[in-house]
Write a protein that binds this DNA or RNA. Structure first.
Lengths: 100, 100
DNA sequence: TATAGAGTTATCATAGTTGATAACTCCGAA
DNA sequence: TTCGGAGTTATCAACTATGATAACTCTATA
């Protein structure tokens, strides 16, 4: 094992991570979390304040906003969060270009 | 108990049901199910065909499309269904008029 | 530096969704 | 009237999101 091999490995790993992040950025779940945080900050609320309104804990709000990609919240959870920051949810379906 | 009482009871019950239906029709969950069914029919697919694509059973697809108002599907479930009918999901947040 | 506020992470129990199977209704076509 | 396709409903197991608690980091500020 040379130092070159190690640095190659690191480089490869980092590339994978960045690719993964880019990929996740496109997912609806990722966009959703970004939106949730933006709406909360726009409303001037802390996670703890939202937690109080929804009768839960701030740790759970943090988890909702930062859930890793393997988790997927329930629609009702998103709706409740939205209500707490003064919004309601609409689900839109956008056609994908399957056949060229 | 007269027949008049019975008919009054029925009338009242029906009124309640209709009110309930109207209320549910406004919920995002209800709108979602209507959209899911519309998209599937537009794509010319049966519940069983979607079930095959998603590696599940037609009974589960039926449940998703007809879930009663107490159930709330996961976001990932909605996304998978959308993909099967050729769409992707976007979640929109619409401001509610809280203070007049 | 120490104190408080805001947010994160880990953990476990509980509640709820989903997977899978089976039996059922309904409807149109042979 | 029979038959098969499409959809519904019920049930239970397996899986996963959420509730709740605690300990932690980070930052601003006194």
């Amino acid at each position: 094992m040379s130092r070159t091999t190690l640095s190659k490995f690191k480089k490869k790993a980092l590339t994978k991570v960045s690719v993964k992040k880019e990929y996740e950025a496109l997912s609806p779940a990722y966009k959703l979390r970004k939106k949730l945080i933006a709406l909360r900050q726009k409303a001037g609320l802390t996670q703890e304040q939202i937690a109080t309104v929804l009768h839960t804990q701030k740790s759970n709000i943090s988890r909702l906003e930062n859930a890793n990609s393997t988790n997927s919240p329930k629609l009702s959870t998103i709706e409740e969060y939205a209500q707490a920051v003064g919004y309601e949810v609409e689900i839109k379906f956008i056609p994908t270009q399957k056949n060229t």
